[in-house]
């Protein structure tokens, strides 16, 4: 499948936005998954609901919330501008933020499942062998759930590639800056006679999504053996 230079630009921008989004949000996703899988604290149910909010809210609502918060006069936007002189509004970084938030619930779910699959008896064994809580985490817990973390990241990456509603609401649809794959398809659909472009970009979207799903499913199976699924 041959793409025009402009179409390659769209794919490259999408990859950059999604890549930055996932790498940036991965530590947060892990921390949330760990708290939900292992934590026994007040407000756990509330946190669980909050994490899942992007999964059930209309994406346009998330986009609007980001717009309110990160606008130059908004609570976070004003602070970012004053301290660092940056804004996320109408920038690819804003697209990455929107993608990260929309991908978060899926990533937390996948990582949480893999953490819950780690046998606590193995962690006990590590403790009796002289490993403190941190050493046990690095040498037993983390390696055992690593495939789940990678699966969650791949799944989140696929979700980010498809992110549309929150992105277009928050950072608009600017070619070369915020026009990711779905936004480019949407833009092309508005122009008569660009069926070929739509077809090629849609083909890329299908290809990338299927690859990501298969990859994350294989990784989850490699960890858990029977009964381990991301999907």
């Amino acid at each position: 499948m041959l793409l025009s230079a402009q179409e390659w630009g769209v794919v490259a921008l999408s990859a950059k936005v999604s890549g930055v989004a996932i790498l940036g949000v991965l530590p947060l996703a892990f921390a949330l998954a760990f708290a939900l899988a292992r934590g026994r604290f007040r407000g756990r149910v509330l946190l669980d609901a909050l994490v899942h909010l992007p999964l059930v809210l209309p994406p346009v609502v998330i986009g609007w919330m980001l717009l309110v918060a990160f606008a130059p006069a908004g609570p976070i936007g004003a602070w970012l501008w004053r301290l660092f002189g940056v804004t996320l509004l109408f920038r690819w970084t804003g697209a990455a933020l929107a993608a990260a938030i929309m991908a978060l619930p899926l990533m937390v779910r996948a990582i949480r499942l893999s953490l819950e699959a780690v046998d606590p008896r193995l962690e006990q064994a590590a403790r009796t062998l002289g490993a403190g809580p941190w050493a046990t985490f690095w040498r037993v817990t983390l390696p055992l759930c690593a495939p789940g973390i990678v699966a969650g990241a791949v799944l989140g990456f696929a979700r980010s590639l498809g992110e549309f509603g929150a992105t277009i609401t928050f950072v608009s649809n600017i070619p070369g800056e915020t026009q990711t794959l779905p936004l480019a398809i949407y833009a092309a659909l508005q122009v008569p006679g660009s069926d070929a472009t739509v077809l090629r970009l849609a083909g890329v979207a299908v290809l990338l999504s299927v690859l990501a799903l298969v990859a994350s499913e294989l990784l989850a199976r490699r960890q858990g053996g029977k009964g381990a699924h991301v999907l």
């Binding site: 046998d119 008896r121 193995l122 009796t128």
Partner: peptide, 15 residues
């Protein structure tokens, strides 16, 4: 804590 007891524990389920 367990890591400071220097127990050589051979579990029934080996682990």
């Amino acid at each position: 804590p367990p890591e400071r007891r220097a127990a050589g524990y051979v579990f029934q389920d080996l682990r």
